[in-house]
Design a protein around this nucleic acid. Structure first.
Lengths: 109, 109
DNA sequence: GTAACGCATGTCCAAAGGGATATATGTCTA
DNA sequence: TAGACATATATCCCTTTGGACATGCGTTAC
């Protein structure tokens, strides 16, 4: 999985990805939109790029970054296993109670 | 958002959540399934519980944990904004090229 | 050619956080 | 009540990593 979640854990990186939602942006654009320092933006973009979450297209002296969906998809798919936990009013332990009517403790496997 | 992604960033916590996918588990169950030490399991479960990602139901001297979908849903919804980046063959900069036929550099805003 | 611009990188530092170990707390059993 | 069992917590250590700052490198403009 190359730890996509690790990347998304950092608010600064999420802000960058949010700023890239509606298309390519230059580094200076991202600096203005995220209120981060330019070196910080470059540093985090580098990390995102090494992980394949964003792509770089140089245009003159500008570097235009855009989102690369593939890695994010893995995270989304991981989370999809848990959809049932917030659907159909499936709450806390309702499901467990449904599966195991008897209160007897369960042993390994 | 209370940083759900921060929680998911740690592999050990993801392993715990994976072990909880098919229902309630006791701490010892989780220790066996994740190959983590018992104190580590308890420590990470505590963090997950404080964030509302899992719920605790004490039964005798066992503590049964289960998944609480609400927080995970927020992460899933955040990612849903990026679905279009891996759908419809939307690649790298295709989208930008589509939006901006001229190669002239873009200035702020 | 030189200066301004756009971006990347290197270095230092301090804070955060996970694991290991030991120990405390609570519950069941004999 | 004693002891085994299930889990939680406390402390220490060590690694990771984000930000600030300074600087390097390539590109455009004058």
């Amino acid at each position: 999985m190359a730890d996509v979640f690790q990347l998304l854990a950092e608010p600064s990186r999420r802000h960058l990805l949010e700023a890239l939602r509606d298309g390519e942006r230059s580094v200076n654009d991202l600096v203005a939109r995220t209120h981060m320092s330019q070196p910080s933006v470059s540093k985090q973009l580098r990390i995102l790029r090494d992980s394949g979450v964003v792509a770089l297209r140089p245009v003159g002296r500008q570097h235009l970054y855009s989102i690369q969906g593939r890695s994010l998809r893995e995270a989304s798919e991981w989370l999809s296993y848990y959809e049932r936990f917030w659907q159909e009013g499936l709450n806390r332990m309702d499901e467990a109670l449904r599966r195991e009517p008897g209160p007897k403790a369960r042993r390994k496997r």
